[in-house]
């Protein structure tokens, strides 16, 4: 039972990464490329959280009376890492989209093969 779950979760997160990479590598629209980047982000976050999961584990938050429950808790280190990564990923997406808006304002197109000049 857990074997299916394991293959499912790892497979889904790796599939997300691959789908995002496909979009980045083959699509010509700038917004599509940024969408692909955010899909890659999601896949990596799921992969990291899955690595830290513990079977029958609880969230790493202590309650009164259960101060010794540390052995049954999932790994908090990947969670803190992913927490940081989501916020930074939003900043990266915002800056990328502002560059897209700026490129559109200058070139009046979103197709990367039409944007030939390096000059703004």
């Amino acid at each position: 039972m857990y074997k299916f779950l394991e293959y499912g979760v790892y497979g889904a997160s790796i599939l997300l990464i691959l789908i995002g990479l496909y979009a980045v590598l083959t699509k010509k629209s700038l917004i599509k490329i940024v969408i692909g980047l955010s899909i890659i982000d999601g896949g990596i976050h799921l992969l990291l959280i899955t690595i830290g999961y513990l079977r029958q584990g609880t969230a790493p938050i202590f309650s009164p009376g259960f101060e010794n429950a540390a052995a049954k808790m999932v790994d908090p280190v990947p969670q803190a890492l992913v927490l940081t990564a989501i916020v930074i990923g939003f900043g990266v997406t915002a800056v990328a989209l502002s560059l897209v808006i700026r490129l559109y304002r200058h070139h009046r197109t979103l197709q990367i093969d039409e944007i030939k000049s390096l000059k703004w």
Partner: peptide, 23 residues
């Protein structure tokens, strides 16, 4: 489900609302 409520809250606020709106 994977016992990460902190990350779930962040993803709900930032991933669902703010990223979609900015796109």
């Amino acid at each position: 489900i994977l016992q990460a409520p902190d990350v779930a809250l962040t993803e709900a606020a930032i991933g669902v609302a703010l990223t979609t709106i900015i796109f």
